[in-house]
Design a protein around this nucleic acid. Structure first.
Lengths: 203, 203
DNA sequence: AGCAAGCGATACAGACCTGTCTGTAGCAGT
DNA sequence: ACTGCTACAGACAGGTCTGTATCGCTTGCT
């Protein structure tokens, strides 16, 4: 065996991901990770030079999984408005499921308030990407103020995930989809009568 | 001096509050607190039997301060709808201020995912009280589905605070007030014509 | 005056933390 | 067979964590 074993790396990352998500970053030590992954500590430190880099690797994989989930929840051939509605249906379903313990990136920002910390920076980059995607969908849907609508929807999304971690499966997140629909409708030109009508503005 | 010195207790609590809020709970040790409060460790442990109880004391004081801020942001003689709007104006102002590092109770839930942990339980009790208050205001405003409106507004509020910790002063939280207004208007009977009209429902 | 108690300072116990080091075993290529 | 790399196992270093114990010193009450 002359090359690094990808299975060992995956086992470490899988174990770390589950423990970090369930208990947080500070509460989980590398000793626990190596014990639960049935891996030597040297192996962990060969693949991940430090705990911080393991945290970043976990967040980056969570980011990829998020986008896979996001893309799977929308049908890209449907109108953008329907895609937005589908995303928030999926968010509500996820945030009210027993497996959901909130947003890993919110937890990272909570535990690493310093924005220079790699854990916070990685989380912020993810959130910024989500924000951009929502704004793009809002623009494609014809929102009068797409940036405002995108940001507003991001608030609802983060509120739903915060509620999930705070409350568990039965939480105010059960209203996320309808809240998003209300906000989307308010930002879009009236579908029936006038072809162009600004809702007012949205700072 | 035969009685406990309330000044020492306050100094500990003030210092702990600032450090917990800025750096999180796990990241701040009692040694740092006693050093910064210029207090002996024995004094800290006389007033607070454990770090967990100090955390709870901090959260309970933050809860009181939250309600003082909340009550100061609304004029109780104005209509309930105006009170809701005023609250979310205040939330937006707070969440986009440089001093705001997010919601201490969200941080507590993030760092103590176990809902049996006193830190999480205290945070959840606070959030539940806010939820109830918002629902009451929604009912007083005449919302067709006050619980739905109250929960929806809680999502916006928590989203704004999550954004504040993630982004800092310039964040999507800048849209919290208008988002709240849109949601409130959608849940309230039309102000002009019919005196009673259900918007549709709200799960 | 004397006593009880809070206070500061400091040392300490025992556990845990991250990260390193040592040593052994196994596989691949030469 | 020899070399080079990886993995496992476990001890270890140096620091930090919570919480306790032991000192005097000060202060208010009786």
């Amino acid at each position: 065996m002359n090359a690094p074993d990808p299975a060992a790396r995956e086992r470490v990352l899988d174990t770390a991901a589950a423990l970090f998500y369930e208990h947080g970053f500070h509460a989980v030590g590398v000793d626990l990770i190596v014990a639960q992954a049935a891996v030597a500590k040297t192996t962990l430190y060969r693949h991940f030079p430090s705990k911080d880099e393991l945290i970043v690797a976990y967040l980056e994989r969570a980011n990829l999984e998020f986008w896979a989930w996001f893309d799977a929840s929308v049908d890209p051939v449907t109108p953008a408005r329907d895609q937005l509605l589908a995303v928030f249906d999926a968010i509500e379903t996820l945030a009210t499921s027993a497996a959901c313990l909130g947003c890993a990136f919110q937890v990272s920002a909570a535990e690493f308030p310093d924005r220079a910390h790699p854990g916070h920076a990685t989380a912020l980059a993810h959130k910024e990407a989500v924000r951009t995607r929502l704004r793009e969908l809002a623009a494609a849907a014809g929102a009068a103020h797409p940036d405002a609508l995108g940001d507003t929807l991001l608030l609802v999304m983060d509120g739903a995930f915060a509620a999930a971690r705070m409350y568990g499966p039965t939480s105010p997140a059960a209203h996320a989809a309808r809240a998003a629909r209300t906000l989307i409708d308010a930002h879009l030109p009236a579908r029936r009568p006038r072809p162009r009508q600004k809702p007012a503005e949205g700072t």
